[in-house]
Protein backbone atom coordinates (compact mmCIF):
# COMPACT_ATOMS: atom_id res chain seq x y z
CA UNK A 1 0.00 0.00 0.00
CA UNK A 2 1.42 3.40 -0.98
CA UNK A 3 2.75 5.37 1.97
CA UNK A 4 1.43 8.93 2.03
CA UNK A 5 2.97 10.13 5.30
CA UNK A 6 5.54 8.53 7.55
CA UNK A 7 6.18 9.11 11.25
CA UNK A 8 8.25 12.24 10.64
CA UNK A 9 5.67 13.58 8.22
CA UNK A 10 2.87 13.21 10.73
CA UNK A 11 4.98 14.75 13.51
CA UNK A 12 5.88 17.79 11.42
CA UNK A 13 2.31 18.25 10.20
CA UNK A 14 0.92 18.19 13.76
CA UNK A 15 3.60 20.60 14.98
CA UNK A 16 2.79 22.99 12.14
CA UNK A 17 -0.93 22.74 12.97
CA UNK A 18 -0.18 23.48 16.64
CA UNK A 19 1.66 26.66 15.59
CA UNK A 20 -1.22 27.65 13.32
CA UNK A 21 -3.66 27.12 16.18
CA UNK A 22 -1.67 29.47 18.42
CA UNK A 23 -1.40 32.00 15.62
CA UNK A 24 -5.09 32.06 14.87
CA UNK A 25 -6.32 31.85 18.48
CA UNK A 26 -4.51 34.67 20.23
CA UNK A 27 -5.91 33.70 23.57
CA UNK A 28 -4.99 30.06 23.92
CA UNK A 29 -6.65 30.29 27.33
CA UNK A 30 -10.15 29.68 26.02
CA UNK A 31 -9.49 26.88 23.54
CA UNK A 32 -10.13 23.19 24.11
CA UNK A 33 -9.43 20.09 22.03
CA UNK A 34 -12.04 17.41 21.36
CA UNK A 35 -10.89 14.30 19.51
CA UNK A 36 -13.35 12.15 17.59
CA UNK A 37 -13.03 8.49 18.55
CA UNK A 38 -11.06 6.60 17.85
CA UNK A 39 -7.98 8.05 16.15
CA UNK A 40 -8.88 11.68 16.66
CA UNK A 41 -8.33 11.17 20.38
CA UNK A 42 -4.58 10.39 20.44
CA UNK A 43 -4.05 13.06 17.77
CA UNK A 44 -5.82 15.63 19.97
CA UNK A 45 -3.64 14.57 22.90
CA UNK A 46 -0.48 15.08 20.82
CA UNK A 47 -1.67 18.52 19.79
CA UNK A 48 -2.31 19.35 23.45
CA UNK A 49 1.32 18.43 24.27
CA UNK A 50 2.62 20.61 21.44
CA UNK A 51 0.38 23.50 22.50
CA UNK A 52 1.74 23.21 26.04
CA UNK A 53 5.31 23.42 24.74
CA UNK A 54 4.58 26.36 22.46
CA UNK A 55 2.32 28.45 24.67
CA UNK A 56 3.00 27.09 28.14
CA UNK A 57 -0.70 26.48 28.69
CA UNK A 58 -2.54 23.27 29.41
CA UNK A 59 -5.35 22.89 26.90
CA UNK A 60 -8.32 20.83 28.14
CA UNK A 61 -8.73 17.73 25.97
CA UNK A 62 -11.77 15.49 25.57
CA UNK A 63 -12.94 12.50 23.57
CA UNK A 64 -16.15 12.37 21.56
CA UNK A 65 -17.90 9.23 20.34
CA UNK A 66 -20.29 10.10 17.53
CA UNK A 67 -21.93 6.68 17.16
CA UNK A 68 -25.24 7.77 18.68
CA UNK A 69 -25.43 10.68 16.22
CA UNK A 70 -24.82 8.72 13.03
CA UNK A 71 -27.34 8.91 10.20
CA UNK A 72 -26.99 5.30 9.14
CA UNK A 73 -28.04 3.22 12.13
CA UNK A 74 -31.51 1.87 11.43
CA UNK A 75 -32.42 2.77 7.90
CA UNK A 76 -29.28 3.35 5.90
CA UNK A 77 -26.79 0.85 7.25
CA UNK A 78 -23.66 0.93 5.13
CA UNK A 79 -21.55 -1.40 7.20
CA UNK A 80 -21.45 -3.30 10.45
CA UNK A 81 -22.97 -1.65 13.48
CA UNK A 82 -20.32 0.55 15.05
CA UNK A 83 -19.06 -0.24 18.52
CA UNK A 84 -20.27 2.32 21.03
CA UNK A 85 -17.60 3.97 23.14
CA UNK A 86 -17.73 6.52 25.91
CA UNK A 87 -17.66 10.24 25.37
CA UNK A 88 -15.46 12.01 27.91
CA UNK A 89 -15.56 15.79 27.91
CA UNK A 90 -14.59 16.63 31.50
CA UNK A 91 -14.93 20.41 31.09
CA UNK A 92 -17.64 22.88 30.08
CA UNK A 93 -17.54 23.76 26.40
CA UNK A 94 -19.66 26.89 26.94
CA UNK A 95 -17.98 29.98 25.45
CA UNK A 96 -14.85 28.05 24.54
CA UNK A 97 -13.25 27.84 21.12
CA UNK A 98 -13.43 24.13 20.36
CA UNK A 99 -10.92 22.43 18.10
CA UNK A 100 -12.56 19.31 16.78
CA UNK A 101 -9.90 16.76 15.80
CA UNK A 102 -10.29 13.83 13.40
CA UNK A 103 -7.89 11.69 11.41
CA UNK A 104 -9.49 11.72 7.94
CA UNK A 105 -11.96 14.15 6.40
CA UNK A 106 -13.94 12.39 3.66
CA UNK A 107 -17.71 12.77 3.14
CA UNK A 108 -18.11 15.15 6.07
CA UNK A 109 -20.81 13.00 7.68
CA UNK A 110 -18.69 12.18 10.69
CA UNK A 111 -18.03 15.89 11.21
CA UNK A 112 -21.76 16.63 10.87
CA UNK A 113 -22.51 14.05 13.57
CA UNK A 114 -19.74 15.45 15.78
CA UNK A 115 -21.13 18.99 15.47
CA UNK A 116 -24.57 17.77 16.56
CA UNK A 117 -23.04 15.88 19.47
CA UNK A 118 -20.94 18.86 20.61
CA UNK A 119 -23.89 21.23 20.54
CA UNK A 120 -25.67 18.92 23.00
CA UNK A 121 -22.88 19.61 25.49
CA UNK A 122 -23.27 23.35 25.48
CA UNK A 123 -22.76 26.47 23.40
CA UNK A 124 -19.16 26.90 22.34
CA UNK A 125 -17.98 30.29 21.06
CA UNK A 126 -16.75 28.61 17.90
CA UNK A 127 -15.83 25.19 16.51
CA UNK A 128 -12.83 24.70 14.24
CA UNK A 129 -11.95 21.48 12.45
CA UNK A 130 -8.51 19.85 12.50
CA UNK A 131 -7.73 16.81 10.32
CA UNK A 132 -4.55 14.91 9.54
CA UNK A 133 -5.69 14.07 6.00
CA UNK A 134 -8.29 15.66 3.74
CA UNK A 135 -9.08 13.16 0.99
CA UNK A 136 -11.88 15.08 -0.77
CA UNK A 137 -15.28 13.69 -1.91
CA UNK A 138 -17.39 15.80 0.42
CA UNK A 139 -21.11 15.07 0.57
CA UNK A 140 -21.89 17.92 2.97
CA UNK A 141 -20.82 21.58 3.02
CA UNK A 142 -17.97 21.10 5.48
CA UNK A 143 -14.39 22.36 5.30
CA UNK A 144 -11.39 21.83 7.57
CA UNK A 145 -9.62 24.78 9.21
CA UNK A 146 -6.32 22.95 9.71
CA UNK A 147 -5.15 20.16 7.38
CA UNK A 148 -2.05 18.00 7.80
CA UNK A 149 -2.05 16.98 4.17
CA UNK A 150 -4.42 17.09 1.21
CA UNK A 151 -4.47 13.67 -0.45
CA UNK A 152 -6.39 13.38 -3.72
CA UNK A 153 -8.09 9.97 -3.83
CA UNK A 154 -10.71 8.08 -5.76
CA UNK A 155 -13.82 6.76 -4.06
CA UNK A 156 -12.48 3.24 -4.63
CA UNK A 157 -9.54 3.92 -2.37
CA UNK A 158 -9.34 3.85 1.39
CA UNK A 159 -7.13 6.09 3.47
CA UNK A 160 -5.80 4.80 6.75
CA UNK A 161 -4.22 6.99 9.36
CA UNK A 162 -2.37 4.79 11.83
CA UNK A 163 -1.27 6.08 15.21
CA UNK A 164 1.21 4.37 17.48
CA UNK A 165 -1.14 4.58 20.47
CA UNK A 166 -3.67 2.30 18.78
CA UNK A 167 -1.90 0.74 15.81
CA UNK A 168 1.69 0.49 17.00
CA UNK A 169 2.93 2.68 14.14
CA UNK A 170 2.59 6.24 12.85
CA UNK A 171 1.82 6.38 9.14
CA UNK A 172 -0.78 7.24 6.53
CA UNK A 173 -1.36 4.74 3.73
CA UNK A 174 -3.72 4.48 0.75
CA UNK A 175 -5.29 1.14 -0.15
CA UNK A 176 -7.75 -0.12 -2.70
CA UNK A 177 -11.12 -1.13 -1.27
CA UNK A 178 -11.40 -4.89 -1.36
CA UNK A 179 -7.65 -5.25 -1.09
CA UNK A 180 -8.02 -6.81 2.32
CA UNK A 181 -11.21 -8.59 1.58
CA UNK A 182 -13.85 -6.36 3.15
CA UNK A 183 -16.27 -3.67 2.08
CA UNK A 184 -16.17 -2.30 5.60
CA UNK A 185 -14.52 1.06 6.13
CA UNK A 186 -10.89 0.54 6.94
CA UNK A 187 -9.39 1.38 10.28
CA UNK A 188 -8.87 5.06 10.74
CA UNK A 189 -11.49 5.99 8.23
CA UNK A 190 -14.99 6.84 9.30
CA UNK A 191 -17.78 5.22 7.37
CA UNK A 192 -19.62 7.59 5.07
Amino acid sequence: MPLVMDEGGIRRALLRIAHEIVERNRRVGDIALVGIRRRGVPIAQRLARSLLEISGREVPTGALDITLYRDDLMWHAVGPQPVLRSTEIPFSIDDRRILLVDDVLYTGRTTRAALDALIDFGRPRSIQLVVVVDRGHRELPIKADYVGKNVPTSARQSVQVKVSELDGVDEVVIGEIGEHGGHAPAAGEAAP
Binding site: D65, T67, L68, V83, L84, S86, F121
Partner: peptide, 20 residues
Protein backbone atom coordinates in the same frame (compact mmCIF):
# COMPACT_ATOMS: atom_id res chain seq x y z
CA UNK B 1 -19.64 -1.98 27.36
CA UNK B 2 -22.32 -0.21 25.35
CA UNK B 3 -24.24 0.49 28.56
CA UNK B 4 -21.19 2.23 29.95
CA UNK B 5 -21.29 4.70 27.07
CA UNK B 6 -25.03 5.10 27.60
CA UNK B 7 -24.48 5.88 31.26
CA UNK B 8 -22.42 8.89 30.22
CA UNK B 9 -25.39 10.19 28.19
CA UNK B 10 -27.47 10.08 31.39
CA UNK B 11 -24.90 12.26 33.14
CA UNK B 12 -25.15 15.08 30.59
CA UNK B 13 -27.12 18.26 30.88
CA UNK B 14 -29.09 17.28 27.78
CA UNK B 15 -29.79 13.62 28.38
CA UNK B 16 -30.93 12.82 24.89
CA UNK B 17 -29.31 11.56 21.71
CA UNK B 18 -30.96 11.25 18.27
CA UNK B 19 -30.08 7.59 17.73
CA UNK B 20 -33.58 6.09 17.45
Amino acid sequence: DSAEAMKEVGARRIKKVPTL
